[in-house]
Design a protein around this nucleic acid. Structure first.
Length: 212
DNA sequence: CGCCAGGGCCATA
DNA sequence: TATGGCCATGGC
């Protein structure tokens, strides 16, 4: 009763490779992950494009918070997000803004480091780990929960419990986890519009047991 | 016009 | 631990 691999394959066959995260550098990816919080990607992307001249940590660190906020306005919550970007930079500075240095850290330790930054919660931390620091982990966001729940999975209550449960049954491949999260997000957009059951849903053959 | 999107913090009970 | 309010833009 844990064919997470099977669901992955069905989604992949149907939607194809998603190519997440769309960013030129790891730093850009991490900025994007903060700007996209509770916001659609179009708005976040627009905000990222408005700080294109500042997409190096040592440069953005010198940009005053109020100017940063003004630039990222399209992403919404711009004052709070400017603040969050600043606290992230403050942390990143302690590692010389060096992605490769940070990547050497143990996955769990690094995750805790990120969670200690004000404005970075479990989901933002996980996508950073997955797409910027190349850590093969499963992102257990609301979408993943919703989709698995629909298929009757008996899921652990806690965020970490669910995460390790899925990871236990998956091969530890970075690319697979990167695609899986993207595919679940893509699929979530589709199924919500097609209640109660979508006839072209690639997961229909899995056997949906619960709704909601 | 209202709704919500690739969240997270904080106050309250 | 678990809700509820708050932050705010742009597309539909």
């Amino acid at each position: 009763m844990h064919n997470y691999n099977f669901i992955y394959k069905k989604l992949y066959e149907h939607y194809g490779p998603q190519g997440w995260w769309p960013a030129d550098t790891a730093f850009e990816m991490m900025i994007g992950s903060i700007l996209v919080q509770n916001t659609n990607w179009r708005n976040a992307e627009k905000a990222v494009s408005r700080v294109k001249d500042y997409l190096k940590p040592e440069i953005m660190d010198y940009l005053p918070e109020n100017e940063l906020a003004e630039r990222i306005r399209p992403s919404g919550f711009f004052n709070i997000k400017a603040q969050r970007v600043k606290s992230f930079l403050e942390w990143f500075r302690r590692y010389d803004y060096d992605v490769r240095q940070v990547m050497q850290m143990d996955s769990n330790y690094l995750r805790q480091e990120l969670l200690n930054i004000k404005g970075i919660g479990s989901e933002t931390a996980d996508v950073m780990l997955l797409y910027a620091f190349d850590k093969p982990i499963f992102v257990t966001d609301a979408y993943a929960r919703r989709i698995f729940y629909r298929f009757g999975y008996d899921m652990p209550e806690t965020y970490d419990g669910f995460r390790s449960e899925v990871e236990k049954h998956m091969s530890n491949e970075l690319n697979v986890f990167q695609e899986y999260h993207a595919l679940l997000v893509e699929h979530a957009k589709q199924i919500c519009k097609k209640r109660p059951l979508c006839e072209v849903c690639p997961l229909n053959t899995v056997g949906e047991q619960r709704l909601n």
